[in-house]
Amino acid sequence: MRQDDCLKCACCGFDFFTTYGKIGRGFIEAHHTKPVSTLHEDGEETHLDDIALVCSNCHRMLHRRRPWLGMEDLSELLVANKTNEHKKNIK
């Protein structure tokens, strides 16, 4: 998602510019939400709505297994794991 001229990961909110400074400005990866392998041979093309902006780590996790994780699934895993880590640190 693009906010205030920053490119943030649609799954975790990571912003390369915030973390790396000028070298990270405008950097992000593009994830095909509709796999290229599913496009029809009759010339179907990828549309902008089929592309999501994600950080490198989330992109790798989305493609880590088959079937691929959905972006919502990955976002839910991130939230669940943060909650579990928080609970561990309280004990």
Rank of each mutant, 00 (worst) to 15 (best):
H63A: 07
I23A: 07
H86N: 12
A80T: 08
Q3C: 03
D73C: 01
I23K: 14
C11A: 13
W68K: 12
N81P: 00
T38E: 13
F16S: 10
L69N: 13
A30Y: 12
L78C: 08
S75H: 15
D49C: 01
K87T: 09
R60A: 13
E85L: 14
K88W: 08
T18H: 06
R25G: 01
R2C: 09
L74F: 00
H47S: 06
K34Y: 05
R65N: 04
D15I: 02
H59G: 12
M1K: 14
G13R: 02
T83Y: 04
G21W: 06
V54T: 03
K87E: 14
H63R: 08
R2G: 07
E76F: 06
D73L: 06
M61G: 03
R25I: 08
H63C: 01
D73A: 11
W68C: 09
D15C: 15
P35W: 09
I28G: 13
F16M: 07
E76I: 02
N81C: 12
K34A: 04
L7Y: 11
C55W: 06
K34E: 00
C6N: 04
G13P: 05
G13H: 09
I28V: 15
D49M: 06
K8G: 01
H86F: 13
L74C: 04
C9W: 05
H63D: 14
H47I: 00
F27C: 13
M61V: 15
F17W: 08
I51K: 08
T38M: 02
M1G: 14
N84Y: 15
L39R: 12
T38A: 09
H32D: 08
D73E: 13
C58W: 03
Y20D: 00
C55V: 09
I28K: 11
L74A: 08
I90G: 05
H63N: 10
E72L: 10
S75K: 15
H40M: 03
H31F: 04
N84I: 11
